[in-house]
Every structure is written in structure tokens, then in C-alpha cells.
Simulated scan of single mutants.
Amino acid sequence: MKTVVVKCGGSVLKELSDSFFNSMKSLIEDGYQIVFVHGGGPEINAMLEKMDVESEFKNGLRVTSREVLEAAELVLSGSMNRKLVRMLEQKGIPAIGVQSSDQGILRADFISQEELGFVGDVTAVNKNVLELFLQAGLLPVMTPIAKGPDGTVLNVNADHAAGAAAYALAADHLLMVTDVPGVLKDGKLIPSLTAAETNELIDSGVISGGMIPKVKTALKALQSCEHVHIVSGKKPFYEGGKWYGTLFNKEETI
């Protein structure tokens, strides 16, 4: 079976369209297995505000105290995960919520407890558990929460979690879902890019602002997956066997 790992940030989850879910169903009909990894940044921020807990970022990672970790777990493993599972099931896609720290589905070590607190870097993925769900015809919906040393729970970057899952499952495709169709130049979608071409577009200013971290994450993900796509959560990304969005390739494009 071919496998696709889908990563969706919390800010995009609210904007997922019927077209997006139809593309998911088309993948399944065409013999793909899907694993979903989600974030929940905006919802975590809102929860921290309610709890009157301050939060900061260093190098793109949320500094995670025990209070921040409690909020992150509450949001990610609770409301966000359940909401996404319900959305999938309402669209006719059998899904199951997966708390990734359970059974060490995601394992991680501290990056720097002194600087970042309870933030981890994924070191292993228990693919056997994920494969059991897939074999049962269920789509696992994973939280970016990992089991750390001595049973500690660690907050991990959702992009890194998706990349690690894609690598462990030898996924054919990794999809990074955004609120845009892909990389655009003069208003037109660029269907495929290599690392060199991407860096040229960054240097020339064609890729700018919030798209820069997205494409850099996509390029990094090529280390663990052969095909990495930036796709829209608002439009179809797969129809009739054809992919839409920007595909990042290891090989030079022709």
C-alpha cells in the first residue's frame, strides 16, 4: 500500500473545505493509506491567555513550561484532535484519534531543557501501532506530543513529527497543508521545485514572508520523504490521479 502523511497546522484546520476532504477520499479510493498529524498553535495561545500563562518562542519553538505543556496537551489531545476526527468521520472517512505519547508512538528527547523546557526532538516512531490502525481501515490522527525520557511528556514541532512519521512509514508523499495553493510567482502556481530553484526564488524575493518557513520545512522534509507537497486546505489537492499544489523533488526538474 502507498502511504501519505498529511500535516495540518491549527490555523488551517478551521478553513478545511469539502474539496479538501474529497481529495482525501480520492486518495483512499486510489489505494493510499493516510496518516494525519495536526498542530494547534492558535488554540494553545487562546488557552494560555485564559490561564494567564505567558508563552514565548525561541528559534521557532514554543518554550514549554509545565503550565504550557498542560495547556498544549489539553488542546491538542482534547478539543483539536476530537474535532478533526469528527470532521473526517462526517465526511465519510473512518478515523481514530491517536495520542502520540501513548505506547511511545512518538518518542523524543529534550532539545534543551534549560532553554526550551519540555520540548523534544523526535527520536523514534512506533510504526507498528500506526500500521495496525491502517490495516483496520482507520486513518490515525496524531497529536505532536511525544513520550520522553523516564515517562516524561514532551511537546514536539508538528512539522518534525510529520516528517518523522513519513520516514518511519516509508511514506510516498508528505503533504503540508496551508491556506494557499502552493508557491506562486506573478500570481501563478509553480507546480514543482528543487532545493536550488527554491533558494533562488527566496533570494529574488518571489518567495517571501510566511511562505519562507513553509518551503524551508518542505525542503528539510525531503530528507525523510521522496515527494513533499505544499497544498491548499481550501481547494482540491488530488483529483483523478493528479496532484495539485507545489511539489518539491530531490531530483532536478526537467
Rank of each mutant, 00 (worst) to 15 (best):
V53L: 13
P191M: 03
S192F: 04
K214A: 05
I96V: 11
S77L: 10
L189I: 04
S100R: 01
L13I: 15
L130E: 00
E70W: 10
D203R: 12
P94W: 06
L132I: 04
L134I: 06
E54Q: 14
K234W: 12
H229A: 09
K220A: 11
M80N: 10
V98G: 03
T3M: 07
T3V: 14
E73S: 13
I207Q: 02
E131V: 05
V180D: 06
G39F: 13
S23K: 13
C225D: 07
E49V: 02
N157I: 15
L247Q: 03
N22V: 03
G31T: 08
V6Y: 06
L219H: 02
E115N: 12
A196G: 04
D150Q: 05
S232L: 08
V37Y: 00
G209C: 11
V228W: 04
L219P: 05
D203Q: 08
S208T: 11
P144T: 15
Q113V: 12
S17G: 09
V119L: 00
D121S: 06
F21A: 09
V206K: 03
R82V: 15
E15F: 14
E56Y: 12
H38I: 15
T217Q: 06
T152E: 00
F118Y: 12
L74R: 05
G31Q: 03
T64G: 01
L138Y: 11
C8S: 15
Y32K: 14
E29I: 01
L219A: 08
M1W: 05
L247E: 04
T123K: 10
F21E: 12
P140Q: 01
K234Y: 12
L13S: 09
E29W: 03
G187C: 03
Y238H: 11
K216Y: 04
V75I: 13
Q90H: 14
E239A: 05
S26Q: 14
G241E: 01
D172R: 15
I230C: 03
L175W: 06
T253L: 14
V85M: 04
G9T: 12
A171P: 00
G9I: 11
I34E: 13
Q223C: 11
N199I: 12
E239T: 08
G41K: 10
H229P: 11
E89D: 05
P149M: 00
I145T: 05
A158F: 04
M24E: 08
H38A: 11
R86T: 15
L61D: 01
Y244R: 14
L88V: 14
R62Q: 06
D203S: 12
V6G: 03
N22H: 09
V206T: 10
K188M: 01
G151V: 01
S17N: 09
I28F: 13
V177K: 11
G41D: 05
P144V: 15
N81S: 10
A161W: 02
